[in-house]
Design a protein around this nucleic acid. Sequence first.
DNA 1: AGTGTCACCTGAACCTCATTCGGAATTTTT
DNA 2: AAAAATTCCGAATGAGGTTCAGGTGACACT
Lengths: 158, 158
Amino acid sequence: MTLKDTQGLDAIDRKLLGLLSEDAEQSYATLGDKVGLSPPAVHERVKRYKASGRISGVTAQLDPMMTGKPFLAFLHVDTTGWGKSTAMMELRDLPELEEIHSVTGDTCMLLKVRMQDSKAMEALLKRLYDMPDVVSTKTYVALSTYLERPVQAGITEF
Amino acid sequence: MTLKDTQGLDAIDRKLLGLLSEDAEQSYATLGDKVGLSPPAVHERVKRYKASGRISGVTAQLDPMMTGKPFLAFLHVDTTGWGKSTAMMELRDLPELEEIHSVTGDTCMLLKVRMQDSKAMEALLKRLYDMPDVVSTKTYVALSTYLERPVQAGITEF
DNA sequence: AGTGTCACCTGAACCTCATTCGGAATTTTT
DNA sequence: AAAAATTCCGAATGAGGTTCAGGTGACACT
């Protein structure tokens, strides 16, 4: 267990995953130059990442400002019992919903939503209040975003 | 203003952006089949999205569970004054930091962090507490995630 | 209504790059 | 130390990205 660590990933794997998480349109040739491998070797590793699920997909990043969704908010929702999976799950299909987590602390669910304007936000809040098992909702509207990026590959040594 | 709406996007544009935000590895031929266009026509539109910044990039989505970062948490941080940009910004370089927002409500900053284990989380919290202008921190650890996806193209008619 | 302009799409051609294959080298196991 | 497995490289193939010239439709202006 010298080259591969506990995750089954060596240094090249980490570097490749990091490069791909920043830009997945680089050719295998340029990726190979950066990590010191031939194009087929890079190809094989990347294929392995996808097969193993380490890379769940390759997607285009939409700029929310340029695609009509400048309003970002986080909602803390208290529910009676654990009715999360029932009531809350009907919101899954809304494209405005980006995240739904069950969290510790004084609240049950945490939602991340991104919408066109405050009017749409109000409509969603109204819809939440109308849910029978929703007790209370705290809304945190994002005023400005200093950092927002997908999952990174690196790990800091604290 | 019949074909294009206020954003300069027609129905095909929205559909294409939606398809690409789900899977950017489809060939222009298959994309063309889905929206009713020839491969070069699709290519030209996609090129336009990238040039105009609507698509900010194409990236590989890393599965946090499979890449050694199973711990997800949201931190609400109160700071004295507006020292956000000074103290907080030194955290930008940590790959564990995924989001930093300034938000309304009873707190100033909202952080989204994803780490390897609770020990690393504790180290980060300690580092936060040591910052001179950090007043208080509330931590919400995600117990389970029901939905987590990048920016979607669609808009719900409320 | 006619005409010019512009934006967009199509089909063919090219050319880069992804993908596959056999063989060599390195590592791991017995 | 030998053998097995894994990983890598270089060359060949093929798919698909990319470009170009030409055609079509919508819109505006006279």
